[in-house]
């Protein structure tokens, strides 16, 4: 957390979301500045995915306010959404399209100028290492490539805020390393929020970490300082998530 955080790109306050009678997200707030990478951690079913769906407008919060680049997601929905790139937990891929066709569709949906289409696709393909498979049908690609196609559609319009739900799940170690370095590269200029189960990933990529348990935020802190103080993320994670289970 240095001078990077001067401009807030994501600001969410007191988010609450119920599924029926069950509370999935309970008063979670988060803030993110330009050039910051935030890691969302938590056990399965803690509410990470729900938080991400709220932030991208895929779910409406029962309470709370979300601002993306200063625009209210509820009121200036379209303008706010144009600033977001989102990779859901299950990549939203059309199996019957080729990578090229799919990305072209993504560009059209994000309303980029026609003259920029080819350039945007070329960049995204290059960044995600999809050069060799551009003309292949998505359905015939391996999980790793499919995951990367999902990331490609999330960053193709060069959004200010990139939200990735478990971007490294199902990848082999080499691919994981590539995706991590991509996140770091994106995080230099943009704001990135991503969820993961790999604690080492958070330590190596994130500026800040937030731990969620039972829909509540149980820990929040910068990774740098933790490294300096010698606190181990694993300990914090077990402590903060264990406590909740005992009570």
């Amino acid at each position: 957390m240095s001078a990077k955080t001067e401009q807030k790109t994501v600001s969410a306050r007191d988010l609450i979301r119920y599924f029926g009678a069950r509370i999935a997200v309970d008063q979670v707030s988060l803030e993110l500045g330009q050039g910051e990478v935030l890691g969302l951690l938590g056990p399965n079913g803690a509410g990470k995915t729900t938080i991400m769906r709220l932030l991208t407008g895929n779910l409406a919060p029962n309470n709370g306010k979300i601002e993306i680049c200063g625009m209210d997601l509820q009121k200036q929905t379209l303008k706010a959404k144009a600033c977001i790139g989102y990779l859901p937990e299950i990549p939203p891929l059309y199996r019957e399209l080729t990578i090229d066709e799919y990305l072209r569709l993504a560009v059209k949906l994000r309303r980029l100028a026609r003259s920029k289409t080819d350039d945007a696709i070329r960049k995204a393909v290059e960044r995600c290492g999809l050069d060799n498979v551009r003309r292949r049908l998505i359905g015939s690609l391996s999980k790793g490539y499919q995951q990367r196609a999902g990331i490609a559609q999330a960053i193709i319009h060069d959004p200010a805020v990139i939200i990735l739900d478990e971007p490294t799940s199902g990848l082999d170690p080499n691919q994981m390393r590539d995706v991590r370095s991509l996140i770091r590269e994106l995080g230099a200029m943009r704001s990135v929020i991503f969820s993961t189960h790999a604690l080492s990933e958070v330590e190596s990529v994130c500026d800040r970490v937030q731990i969620i348990n039972h829909g509540r935020q149980v820990f929040e802190g910068p990774v740098d300082r933790m490294k300096l103080e010698g606190t181990r993320l694993e300990e914090i994670f077990t402590q903060s998530t264990m406590e909740k289970i005992e009570t």
Partner: peptide, 14 residues
């Protein structure tokens, strides 16, 4: 069924 609805909903279209 294919979980592609977020692709449309996240895009800046109403």
């Amino acid at each position: 069924r294919n979980h592609t609805l977020p692709f449309l909903i996240s895009a800046p279209v109403s």
